[in-house]
Every structure is written in C-alpha cells, then in structure tokens.
Design a binder for these strands. Structure first.
Lengths: 219, 219
DNA sequence: ACTTGTGAACGTGTTCACAGCA
DNA sequence: TGCTGTGAACACGTTCACAAGT
C-alpha cells in the first residue's frame, strides 16, 4: 500500500499502471479517442473488473455508459507515475547488460534520461557508450550529486552489488533498479525493484518440470 | 498454485525458490555446511516463517533444533526447479538486449544452454554471437525443432512480439521469457514470464512521486 | 441501454505462535 | 534448549454482481 497525496494505492495496482499506460498510448497512436474498461483490460492482459478497481484507487475518470477518454486517462496515469518530471538515471556496471541498458532507446519517450555511466573495470572506464563517457565507480560520490541523479540502475556482478548499493544510498538516491542476483539489504525507505533473468528462467524450468511430472507420465 | 508430482506449490513460493537456491549456493561456496531458517531467510530477503512455510510445500528437509544441510537442501531445490536436466534456449531478437542476453555467462552454471539465436534484420543474420551463427527468424519453424529448443527468450520489438510468440508456441514451446513490453495473448498452457525494464522504472518513478507528495511538502 | 465505480464475497498469500522433535 | 514444521489468524488482492449515472 502506497500513499499518494490523499489517496492510498495498493502496490499491486501500481505495478499494473505501466501496462495500462502502454495500452492507452497504443490506442492513442491508432487514433482511438475513447475506450472501455474491457478493451483496455484485454490489451493490458488483465480482467476488466481489475482495471476498473485499479483506476478507482486513483479517482474517477470514465463516463458511465460511455467509457474513458484515451488522451486524458493516459495523461493522468502518466502524471500519477511521476512521468511529468524528468528522471535522471545513472547506470552502474557497464558489462554486457549495462551496455545494452545504456543503449536502450526507450528512455526519453518515457521521461527518463541517462546522465551517467560508471564501472570498475579500468579497461572500460574512459570509454563511451550512448554518448556518455564511462566514469570510474570510485568517483560515485562525486558523479551522482554532480549529474543530479535520482535513480540508479545497478548492473554489477552480484558480489559487489551490496557495497555499491550502500554507497548509492549514501548519495541520497532512494530508488534502485537492480539486475544483480542478490537480495540487497538497505534501509526501509529505499525502494528496490529487482530483475533476475536467471531466476525467471528457473521459474520457467519449474513449470516445465511440473508439466513433465503431470502430463509426461501418462497412464 | 502449481501441481508438482503429488504436491501442490503456490506460485508465489515457486518465484522465491531461485532466491533460496542462490543463497544456499553462496553458503556452500563459503564452506558453510549447516544453516538455519533465519540465516537463509535473511540472505534471501524474506522472513524466516515465510521460508519455512515455502519449504514445507515441498517436503520436510530440516532437523528440528539444528537446521538445514546446505548441500542437500540446495540439491533438492535445484531438482524441484527442474535444473537436473539441461534446458535448451533460443533467443529471438538479437538487438542490444538480445545480444547482452546471448553473452550472459551465467546460463551453463544453472543448467541452461543457449543453442540458437534468431533475428529479422538482414544486417544481423549471418553474424555470430556467443559462438553461434544468427539465423533468420523466418526459419524459426525449422530451427527450433532442429536444435531441440524447449524455452525461448523473446527480445524483439513490441509490435512483432505477439506474432512471433504465436509461431514459437506453434513449434511446441510452452515456456517463454519475454522482454517485449506487451501483454502476450497465448493459450493457457503456455507459461509466459515477462520482464519490462521501462515498466520497472515507471514503478520506481511512482514511488519517487509518492515520496515527493508526502515528505516533499513539509509545512 | 450501456458502462462505470464499488461494496461485499472470495481466494490467495503472509505472519503468528506454538506443538513436535532432535 | 533450540529450531523446524504447521494449523490458525490475519492481511492483501481479485472477482463478482449490482447500484449509480449518463
């Protein structure tokens, strides 16, 4: 449960808002001006009741008997997601993945701007990616404040992630997206979202194994 | 809820098993032979009751008053996750991200093997990455069966993801890890795990906005 | 007539607290 | 004594079904 202004929004709802926003932008691009909870829900991969309930936590945006205005709902969700103001990102750990994330072109359209790249490898430091010079992670305490970073994407190897995360938090950053396969121990007021590719594959493997155990043993 | 043999395991529990496995392997590497639910839980970032409850769905592995044997518990979880058998992966969409995923070195250690890379861009097809030649996505129906792929990592642009996913499913693949920012509409027996980097950043932005609305308006 | 917005019912997942056992 | 394993209590999230509104 997350407080937003006077409202209080379930975390599960927040996690779905990006889906709704994407679906709305697709509709807008297709020239659609009005939509219904069922159409929007289908495009977002949720149930229509779920969608209406989610929106109800944020306010009341539709017209009964008609539906939702695509433009204004998109705008409202975008602003609820804090996408009005620019968010300045640093990417720490410019290996395979960090490099790919640096070159990802979808940030700007979504209100994010990559302003700093850091790595610990002397071979990498001084190089450039996505138009930025890669700086040494030792200078983190200098670079983050200087570039006005408000969020960090952490793409370092697992063993160093905890130590670097602590230094990042020391710089006042309170939002971290981590790709390191470790559970970061950080103060409660720091929000960490974690993406674990190997873990996702393992979950798929579990499903495959479960399938084999049920269907694969016919008779 | 997922059936596994005679047991039935909550999906939320399955999603945490990779964390436990990683923590156990870290412990094993550090030479620790026995651990407790509280130590393991702390390293996994969950509560100790949660960990014990999760394990209880799989069976009974500890010794009361003592704890868990690191080796044997790790082994059991690995086998529950289906990591005994090798899983053969194809990566479809060799852009920035697909390339990074192809070069990610953690697969082998976790029982996964990348056996095919596909892309639609003629500039990319024929090139090589991670020791494999990149094949054309048009040949998907030929490549997947030939290479014995059982899981696919989908890293294509959003607009083409749905169509390609359908073709993948047509080849008999039932487990897909998607990085495309769209809700894939696929048969119920297909398991899709979805990773959406931009969406994760938007969720962080929401938290930042919520923080600004509460703390940032003092007085 | 049609679709939203929402209380109430339901189901799933988490936490508690203690019985069971080494 | 100390830690696991687990029923029971609780919290959270989803779905239902309908009242409210245009």
């Amino acid at each position: 449960m997350i407080e937003l202004g006077e409202a209080t929004v379930p975390a599960a709802t927040v996690a779905r808002l990006p889906y709704y926003l994407r679906a709305l932008r697709d509709l807008a691009e297709a020239g659609v001006t009005t939509t219904s909870s069922s159409e929007l829900a289908e495009r977002s991969g949720v149930g229509s009741a779920q969608l209406r309930k989610d929106l109800s936590y944020l306010g009341s945006f539709g017209t009964r008997g008609v539906g939702y205005d695509v433009q204004s709902l998109a705008q409202y969700i975008a602003s609820a997601l804090g996408l009005g103001s620019e968010h300045r990102l640093a990417i720490v750990g410019i290996g395979n993945l960090g490099h790919a994330l640096a070159n990802y072109s979808g940030y700007a359209a979504r209100g994010f701007q990559v302003v700093a790249l850091l790595d610990a490898d002397p071979q990498v430091v001084g190089g450039s990616a996505a138009g930025l010079t890669i700086e040494h992670v030792d200078a983190l305490e200098d670079v983050l404040p200087r570039t006005g970073v408000s969020m960090v994407v952490l793409a370092t190897p697992g063993p160093v992630a905890q130590a670097i995360a602590e230094r990042i938090v020391g710089c006042g950053v309170r939002e971290i997206l981590s790709f390191a396969p470790v559970a970061l121990q950080l103060p409660d007021d720091v929000v960490v979202r974690s993406v674990d590719v190997a873990g996702e594959l393992q979950i798929l493997a579990f499903h495959a194994a479960a399938r084999a155990a049920t269907n694969g043993t016919p008779r």
